[in-house]
Write a protein that binds this DNA or RNA. Sequence first.
DNA 1: GCCGTTTTCGGCCCGACTGTTTTCAGTCG
Length: 607
Amino acid sequence: MQPANDEIAQLFENLGALLEMKGDSVFKIRAYRRAAETIRQLTFPLAQAVHDGRKLTGIPGIGKAISDKIHELVTTGKVQTYERTRAELPAGALDLLAIPGIGPKTAMLIGAELGISSVEGVEQAAADGRLAALPRMGQRAADSILRHIRATRSMGGRTPIGDALPAAEAVIAALRERGPETALLTPAGSLRRWEETIGDVDLVAVTPNPEELGRALTALPQVRETLVNGPRKTSVILSLDRPSKAQDDSAPGLQIDLRTGEPGAIGAMLQYFTGSQQHNIRLRDFANRMGLSLNEYGITGIESGQMETFADEAAFYARLGLPWIPPELRAGMWELEAAQQGRLPQLVEARHLRGDLHIHSDWSDGSDPIETMIEAAAALGYEYMALTDHSQGLGVANGLTPERLAAQKQVLGELQQRFGLRILAGSEVDIRADGRMDFPDEVLAGLDVVVASVHNAMSQDSPTMTRRIIRAMEHPSVTIIGHLSTRLLGQRPPTDFDLETVLQAALETGTALEINASPARLDLRDTHAYRAREMGIPLVINTDSHHHSELPGGRFGVAVARRAWCEPRHILNTLPLSEFLRFIQTPKPGRLRIFQAAGAAPSGGNV
DNA sequence: GCCGTTTTCGGCCCGACTGTTTTCAGTCG
């Protein structure tokens, strides 16, 4: 079993933490952390790259030493340096670092003085006074740690963006209504970068009355607890209505950090709090080499000591000789080089979408009649849509038999007369456990759009699942593979399959891949979409709507595509109706040329 | 340990906050 990128990243993350406890060079530690962060965001499996003999040292933050350690891990299953370092330190010390407020120094102290190596042990020691008795600790510090342990337990980790964004938008709307006048009140941080899960929600505001805005935030009805209420920063914890975690008995919470700045200087603050941390570190390094120093208030000449302020982000980046970089690209990967060289993509936007190709009605498990769904698509100004109710095998979803499907086609034909947009006959067809389709070939051949999806036997091993998906792609009638990994954020892990092999098959068969925009799925995920885009595979942003209110919900899928550096030309459903029809009417795999003629030739990898 | 339109050596992002402290260490983002 080859180590996945996340496991390799975790090893370097841990190695950095261990060296920090030992008091090793902070620069070496930072280098390991940076490498870990980079590896997490890679769009190809490192282990495979090692086997293929590809050079790893061109990847940002990976030099000879770390490249050698990756080779060692992939070929031997271990890294000697890591094993040795871990053996030198108290067992369990790494677990203590997960407690907010406990860093490497405190973890070492607790391990050495009290022999404690678990979160529960620290909680006990904080409660019975042993923690407070340690040097450089005290009752207040021990109480703070105890509070943090209990808070972390009740928060339940990172929040899916589908829960965090509506909560943040509700807070912003409420503050606009009840708070003082604000010239700006906007999300920053991971929410503004549209990451799939959010730690804390960062809000940045410009207002003549910061204290009043802070007070208004603490007074909102959904606020459970106020952590900080200072002149420039207010932090609260919201009670979160999280239907996706309904089975959890702990009440989930979401921390909101609100910061206020001066109108003429908000550019630097918004940039700073949008991050990512890796992006900011690289940007500051870049600025240093220009003789400039960055902070959240402005840009300072290192020689002159003079600080300049900026009214918006574009002016801030312009002072560094760079174009404005969209937040979704600020990952600390390749975006600075692309910005310098004028190669930033013109990212796809929701307004570019001309159709939705994955829509359910009450004929299967949707909750609205077909007409209601069509009206909702027409209201968005779409040129086309595909109705794709489930196939017969999905009994729990009231899947359609071939007979009901034929009847539905008839209905669609009649409805077509009443609407301006083109209504395509489709189905979301089950990919059976062996890769066969859940409808006979002649039924599938009569449809305009076939979305083939895995809905059962999700625990198959990787070779089986890989073969199963590829067999579906090889079917001449399959237009799109739906929600490739079947994951549900925070609830169900992705299935196990060989991504590179599957993507290669998509390309060879001319099968499109769906970016499922349902915030519970976000599937393809960003890094997989990035790789697919690089290879020239047609991508489709679909809502998988089961209710008319979900049709305008494509924004989460658009965000995934933007994080994958997609331009409109990479997204199949930005094509005008005539070209889209030409695509689906041209047999596979030749239809790929229609898509690529529209501008989406493979772009080649970065490594 | 990484990196280079000053450099293959000598730098390496920056500030806020907290709590324990008489000048700062540790942690966080």
